[in-house]
Simulated assay, not measured.
Amino acid sequence: MDNSLKYIIYEKKNNIAIITVNRPEVLNAINNQLLSELDYTVNVAEEDDDIRAIIITGSGEKAFMAGGDIAAMKEMSLMEGERFVYAGHTFLNKLENSRKTVIAALNGYTLGGGLEIALACDLRVADENVQLGLPEVTIGLYPGWGGTQRLARLVGTGVAKQLVFTGERITANEAKQLGIVNKVVSSGQVLEESLALANRILKNSPIAVMQAKKAINNGIEISLEKALVLEAEAWLVNFATEDRVEGMRAFVDKEKPNYKGR
């Protein structure tokens, strides 16, 4: 682990990596350095075989991430903007396709690039006071880190267009009703609830969860007919594992399974 991290706090709790964005003085706004550190720490978690879930959250009570660092972006040349947008795409694709389960613990303003990062996670747990939105059009931009694509796939084009075109913010409960977040929790409980959710997932076969994630992520992009073939093939890969044998044995014997990820 790089001890020179400036904007990220990285912790391990048993089989869970907690990545905390720590730039609260600017509402955890994302600049090049912060993005690079996020990418690095996700790589660390990805390569650690002990880690089975990743939680991303923000420090302080005001923000998960309030979007890109506008002061820094205002000074970017076109070439610098190009590097920034593609670096974001590379990181978010890595996050979305991680072998681990990735949970966004939303604890404040979740705006712009912050919401786009959350959308690339598998699950989103939100503090009841969270505000979410893609306000880029209000400053002459539009979402460029997958916001126009992942949001539309999650909630449909009509809702996505309304949120993107207006730049308006919505509450955690509104986001829950739209299917943007999975769960809304009492103020101050978001990390605890995210850890509890991760631990529930960790009780299951890691290979089965990973194969299910692949089937969902890859299947949504293709026709149902092709997706069902993909699902069956992934199911057969999973059927050949020791974990599948152990899970079924434990069920029949009324015992807790001892999954080993094999």
Rank of each mutant, 00 (worst) to 15 (best):
M73E: 11
M73C: 11
K74D: 14
E75L: 14
E75P: 00
M76W: 03
L78G: 01
M79D: 05
M79C: 02
E80L: 02
R83D: 13
Y86T: 15
A87W: 01
A87N: 13
H89S: 09
F91M: 14
K94F: 06
N97H: 11
R99E: 12
K100A: 11
V102Y: 08
A104S: 14
Y109G: 03
Y109V: 00
G112E: 02
D122N: 13
V125Q: 05
V125R: 03
E128H: 01
E128T: 04
N129Q: 09
N129I: 08
V130M: 04
V130A: 06
Q131L: 15
T138H: 08
G140D: 09
Y142E: 12
Y142C: 04
Y142R: 15
W145R: 02
T148Q: 10
R150K: 12
R150W: 07
R150V: 11
L151W: 06
A152Y: 05
L154T: 11
V155K: 05
G156D: 14
V159C: 06
V164H: 12
V164N: 11
T166H: 06
T166P: 06
T166E: 15
I170H: 13
A172N: 05
N173Y: 12
E174L: 01
G179Q: 08
G179A: 02
V181Y: 07
V181C: 08
N182W: 03
N182M: 02
S186R: 15
S186C: 02
S187M: 05
Q189G: 01
Q189C: 11
L191M: 12
E193I: 08
E193D: 09
I201H: 00
L202P: 06
